[in-house]
Design a protein around this nucleic acid. Structure first.
Lengths: 157, 157
DNA sequence: CTCGGTGCAAAGCTTTTGCATCCGC
DNA sequence: GCGGATGCAAAAGCTTTGCACCGAG
């Protein structure tokens, strides 16, 4: 899944050019970090990681760049119930939705094409042009190790 | 839709009794305010409204009570893309999901039973017990007055 | 050289917390 | 009266902003 980084760079370059935005080192440092690592992350964690790697990017630039990446469709922003926004790379990954475990906060991905049917019906019925969506199921694992945490999350003090 | 307030009170009373929580004036003041007014609201606005009505409830109590109402299923919490949590009463209202206009931020409700099928399949496939969900479509109106705001939200500086 | 982008730190906003006081039980 | 709940204000956590400096075009 590494060639997606190259593709992401191309997309980002095109986006920046089109918008007459500058192609700064920092923007590509951030894009690379996101596409090199996996999973969901929040802005602060990304900032910490970059700082550890001695990239001198500031929080302001991290937030700014995440905004640009979201605009260009390279990154998707999620709010999984908490107040922190989590981000996730958007290409090299097929369209999917999320299932969040209320006990251990683990995030699982799934995909069901029938959601497309629902979207089409809503678009037609309500006369909207839908550009994106967020579907999150919340629940409890019933067979993994997570079950043990059902009590644990109560005393996470 | 006013008798739902009475029902809500009963449900809340039962919940508080079961959990051995106290039945304070403030908690019912907040519940009433929520069930008397409509639509989606955030904690701060609710606090402001109560303050205007000379109810001496504090922010702390508003947040605390919203938590209890959420626990008891009388209120649902949403994150419609921004950092503010919006709440909405949950009984007297049939199950529904939301469509958010990216131009004017208007929130429209819809309902599609097929989502239940998706939920069932996810539960079965991933072995989860799903307790609730959030489905939000984001898009643009194509025929209401909102269309005019497509440009407006660009210059909201 | 210009001016958009960056770094830093401070401010802003929503939400949470600590502690003295209050009131449901 | 006891101990949970409240009010107030301060603190915490995420995100945005102001300003001086830097570097892409």
């Amino acid at each position: 899944m590494h060639q997606s980084k190259e593709e992401a760079r191309k997309v980002f370059l095109a986006f920046l050019a089109k918008q007459n935005y500058r192609k700064t080192q920092e923007r590509f440092t951030i894009l690379d970090e996101i596409y090199d690592s996996g999973e969901h992350f929040d802005a602060e964690t990304l900032y910490e990681i970059l700082k550890e790697k001695n990239s001198r990017v500031s929080r302001a630039t991290v937030y700014n760049t995440l905004g640009l990446l979201e605009e260009s469709g390279l990154v998707v922003k999620h709010q999984f119930g908490s107040n922190v926004a989590l981000y996730e790379k958007a290409i090299g990954y097929r369209q999917h939705d999320h299932l969040v475990c209320l006990d251990c906060r683990k995030i699982t991905e799934f995909c069901d094409p029938r959601l497309g049917n629902i979207q089409n019906k809503v678009e037609e019925l309500l006369k909207y042009q839908i550009t994106n969506h967020s579907l999150i199921f919340y629940g409890h694992c019933t067979q993994t190790a997570c079950v043990h945490k059902t009590a644990a999350h109560e005393k996470q003090d």
